[in-house]
Design a protein around this nucleic acid. Structure first.
Lengths: 185, 185
DNA sequence: ACCCTTCTATAGTGCTTGTTATAGAACCGT
DNA sequence: ACGGTTCTATAACAAGCACTATAGAAGGGT
């Protein structure tokens, strides 16, 4: 009833697939590319993950969940302004971390527009809380500031993917954080 | 010596090709896609433009030249701060113009990293002039502000490509412009 | 009217793509 | 040890890709 055991670690394979999609995007990542990096054959991949679209969706969902949890954790400190500063800090670090592909999978992959929208709404929620708690000016437009923040971070991702250094990406974040501070109390 | 005349307008064909690459990116734009939208056959396309990479380069060069000229024109007014305000204004308009594909070809196509770098350096030059002319604070880091501006505009492009409305894209620009104003005199 | 040149249309090239049929291998429960 | 189940490997599939050889059509120069 149990059958022959899988010859590879499915979770590790999902992580490796995610990195390939992250690095090269959906179109340029081929099944042959994936089977080569996973060290398995096509039928094994299809049996474990379904077709290319399904595997991409699984990999993207994993990335999105991770990045969402990271944002929630970073912004859950009392002072949202300090949270934003830390968000920019960890973003710079992760986008230029040599152990992972540069930039952000979620913000660079055209197919993930819906997930970007969801993340922006979630960030707006954090900012609204910051306004309610008195850490941001009451006149602050939480939605606009969230859109701005995601836009800047998307631009930071582009710069990192273009080969920008950590210092260059950080320079962007610093200007953006100064803009955020205009709304801080 | 002159031979059979070309049956189509080469300049118009280049513009149409540019729109396809702009809309769908390099990989998703196929030769069949191009011949269909141009209403010509593959040999005609190859005779006129060379292979896919060469055609893409020509289309991209045309876009880059146009956007660079637009930026130069917008920023050549005396007060660079006013120029930046207008740059953001025309950017919002063009990114959400229904007559063209959404967002920016130059800032959304992964292959155009070098051209992005060139544009950023050119913007930094304008900002340096603005500092020298006394319209921006002398302590302003022109390179950092240029990187920031391009990053924000890249984020605006992403939002426009994701289906964002003109109002949403403008909201991003407004926050960014407030950040720029922190350096204005 | 003819030749020369350059374009166009048909058709097909070889390659890569995502996906799968088939057969054999490896494990569990009995 | 054996049957049942689930995996793996080989091999191949059809479709799509970028690209082109060949032959004919359309113009200009003389």
């Amino acid at each position: 009833m149990t059958g022959r055991p899988r010859s590879f670690d499915q979770d590790a394979a999902l992580l490796l697939s995610m990195e390939r999609f992250w690095q090269n995007g959906y179109e340029r990542t081929t099944i042959g590319d994936l089977t080569a990096t996973l060290g398995i054959t096509a039928p094994s991949l299809y049996a474990a993950f379904g077709d290319k679209d399904t595997l991409f969706a699984s990999a993207a969902a994993h990335y999105v969940a991770s990045v969402t949890a990271q944002m929630d954790k970073t912004l859950s400190q009392p002072n949202v302004r300090d949270g934003l500063a830390e968000l920019f800090r960890v973003t710079v670090e992760s986008y230029t971390d040599e152990k992972t592909p540069p930039g952000c999978f979620l913000l660079s992959e055209p197919r993930l527009a819906d997930e970007r929208r969801t993340l922006t709404a979630r960030l707006a929620g954090h900012l609204r809380r910051g306004i309610d708690d008195g850490f941001l000016d009451a006149s602050t437009d939480a939605d606009a500031l969230a859109e701005f923040t995601i836009a800047v971070i998307a631009g930071m991702s582009t710069r990192a993917r273009d080969g920008g250094s950590a210092a260059e990406v950080r320079a962007i974040a610093d200007v953006a954080l100064a803009a955020v501070d205009a709304h801080a109390i």
